[in-house]
């Protein structure tokens, strides 16, 4: 594998997250209804960061949780058994505006599984999708509402998102095969 190409450095990543948080606040004037749910594992850090910025914008804490989609995936038979992560649903989702946070959107199948998983947990008034990187190659009619950066990629390339909380540093990198 060739050297990773930096797509976002820590400052650019921080700006992107702040911008998305402002867009979420702008789109949802009733901020008391907002709930952020991160999709494990990277999406959890993304949701927590968004929640932190949004709390400042809205002037009150915004509930942040995690939504595991593994049991709802449509490719369970085609891959090694994936890790199942515990869920953390901080509030009753009925009538709320749920913003799903995932670090990368690719095929759209994770987002579809997330919609199914949410279905079993309640009936939010509205569901929106925030993603740090949109790398294209959608296989389903799904679009993110909030995107940090669009990155055109080839299908065999890889996007690695590193989070300070797990990797010690913030960075988004593109890896060519």
């Amino acid at each position: 594998m060739a050297e990773p190409i930096e797509i976002l450095n820590p400052t650019a990543m921080d700006f992107a997250i702040r911008r998305i948080a402002h867009e979420i606040a702008e789109r949802n004037p009733r901020s008391s209804d907002l709930v952020l749910l991160g999709i494990p594992t990277g999406g959890i850090f993304f949701a927590q960061r968004l929640g932190h910025v949004l709390a400042g914008i809205c002037g009150h804490p915004v509930p942040v949780g995690s939504l595991d989609v593994t049991m709802h995936r449509d490719d369970l038979d085609q891959r090694a058994t994936p890790d199942v992560h515990p869920m953390d649903i901080p509030v009753d989702l009925n009538g709320k505006v749920v913003v799903l946070a995932d670090d990368v959107i690719f095929s759209g199948r994770t987002a579809r599984a997330a919609l199914d998983a949410l279905n079993d947990l309640g009936r939010p008034r509205r569901i929106q999708l925030a993603t740090l990187i949109d790398r294209g190659h959608r296989e389903l009619p799904i679009t993110a509402d909030f995107v940090g950066k669009n990155v055109p990629t080839a299908a065999n390339e890889r996007i690695d998102v590193h989070w300070k909380e797990a990797a010690g540093t913030d960075q988004v990198a593109l890896l060519k095969p």
């Binding site: 990277g42 891959r79 090694a80 058994t81 994936p82 995932d102 095929s107 994770t110 299908a155 890889r158």
Partner: peptide, 20 residues
């Protein structure tokens, strides 16, 4: 989702099957 030594090997991973 498990296959053991006697079973078939897991199909070649499609990069799209991962989270990204």
């Amino acid at each position: 989702g498990g296959v053991d030594a006697q079973g078939a090997a897991p199909s070649v991973p499609d990069p799209r099957l991962g989270k990204n």
